[in-house]
Simulated assay, not measured.
Amino acid sequence: MPRYTVHVRGEWLAVPCKDGQLTVGWLGREAVRRYIKNKPDNGGFASVDEVHFLMRRCKGLGLLDNDDPLEVALEDNEFVEVVIEGDVMSPDFIPSQPEGVYLYSKYREPEKYINLDGDSLTTEDLVNLGKGHYKIKLTPTAEKKVQKSRDVIDSIIKEKTGSSSST
């Protein structure tokens, strides 16, 4: 039974296929269905039917025709990408490598800041930072702590390089 690894936004999904006569479009819909099922917020979609997408090979970025049978269009274990209409690709996207691929849906730069002081970061703050709700600012106190740490590291390096040149 052929299997495909399909990238939908930031997730890689393994999609088995029982019938090679199923189409590239079926593979895309099945990958989106699995993506929606496994995301806590359904990936922002109410149903698979509202998702408009294109399919492309990861290696070489070849655009695929949704009507082509899988057995004709793809090799077993091939990596493919679901490109959802309206999504913006990160400049870090490396299509032929599953590790380190980042595709963001309608990314918007956050307008709010969170001040990091080195003492009061909560779990909720950390989750919201991870979701991209905030930009980070260091408080003056935190900046002084960072500089103090940097000075310690610099002095250790200076001691190590000074002692190795004298031996």
Rank of each mutant, 00 (worst) to 15 (best):
Q147G: 07
D67F: 10
I136N: 04
T141A: 11
Y102S: 12
P110H: 04
K144F: 05
S96E: 15
V88N: 09
S166F: 05
E81I: 11
S164L: 13
F53Q: 03
S164M: 14
G62C: 07
R56G: 06
N66H: 12
K59N: 13
I94N: 12
P95F: 00
D151L: 10
K158C: 10
P91E: 09
A46C: 06
G62E: 13
G118Y: 00
M55E: 05
E75I: 00
G60C: 03
L116M: 05
L116I: 06
Y134W: 05
V48H: 05
K106P: 00
A46V: 10
E124N: 10
D87Q: 03
I156K: 08
F53G: 02
S165C: 07
I84T: 03
I84V: 13
S90C: 04
K131A: 15
R56I: 05
F93M: 05
Y102I: 13
S155H: 11
V83T: 05
P140K: 01
L54T: 15
C58I: 03
V83I: 11
R57T: 11
G118N: 04
A46Q: 13
Y104G: 12
D117V: 02
H52G: 06
T161G: 06
L64T: 05
F93R: 07
N115G: 05
R108A: 14
V88M: 08
K137V: 04
Y104L: 14
I153Q: 08
L103R: 12
Y113R: 04
E143C: 10
D119K: 11
E143L: 09
G162S: 14
I114H: 03
A73F: 02
P69H: 04
H133V: 07
Q147V: 10
K148R: 13
V152C: 08
N66Q: 13
E81F: 08
D49W: 06
S105L: 03
L64Q: 04
I153P: 02
K131C: 12
S164E: 15
K160P: 01
L61E: 15
D68G: 03
G130L: 01
Q97G: 06
N66R: 12
S47C: 08
E75S: 09
D92K: 10
Y113N: 09
L121N: 03
D119F: 09
F93G: 01
E50Q: 10
S105E: 09
S164V: 13
S120Y: 12
S164Y: 15
S166R: 12
E143Q: 14
Y102L: 11
G100S: 01
K135C: 06
V51C: 02
I136H: 00
K59Q: 14
K131Y: 11
G130K: 01
L138N: 12
F53T: 01
S149N: 14
L54N: 15
S105N: 10
K158A: 14
D151C: 05
V82F: 02
C58W: 02
V48R: 04
V146Q: 08
A73S: 10
T122V: 00
V48N: 01
A46K: 12
V80E: 03
D154S: 13
K160W: 15
K158N: 14
L138S: 11
Y134G: 03
K158I: 10
V88R: 07
Y104I: 15
E111V: 13
I84R: 00
D76S: 08
A142P: 01
Y102R: 13
I157K: 08
